[in-house]
């Protein structure tokens, strides 16, 4: 399953709840304000890192760039463009947006 999150972890609990429901082998794509969760020093850094051995974490590059965060991406987070977003949706048998 592909989980898509679009909320900053310091504003809403979507990243937390998503990580709590992402089964081993699933993927999490951070878009819009959720890309902050993929950056060093962010309050959810430890949680994202803890999830990474079992869950693949992706962040949308254009959203990182738009927020001045491209150079602060955590090691192990895969940065994708919109084409990569489409591929992720296609590769996983189902998807969910944690609105």
């Amino acid at each position: 399953m592909l989980h898509i999150v679009n909320k900053s972890p310091s504003e809403r609990n979507s990243v937390d709840t998503c990580l709590g429901h992402a089964k081993d082998g699933s993927a999490v794509l951070l878009i819009e304000d959720a890309v902050y969760a993929a950056t060093a020093g962010n309050m959810s850094e430890a949680k994202v890192k803890a999830a990474m051995p079992n869950v693949k974490v992706y962040a949308l590059g254009p959203d990182l760039a738009a927020r001045g965060m491209s150079a602060r991406v955590l090691d192990g987070v895969n940065v994708v463009d919109y084409g990569g977003f489409v591929d992720l949706v296609a590769e996983h048998s189902n998807c969910q947006s944690w609105l």
Binding site: H21, N94, Q96, S97
Partner: peptide
């Protein structure tokens, strides 16, 4: 529980979140 909820979600074809 959350773990069972995760299993339930995982087996869906379409998940709509509002």
């Amino acid at each position: 529980g959350a773990a069972e909820m995760a299993d339930l979600m995982n087996e869906q074809d379409v998940v709509l979140s509002f």
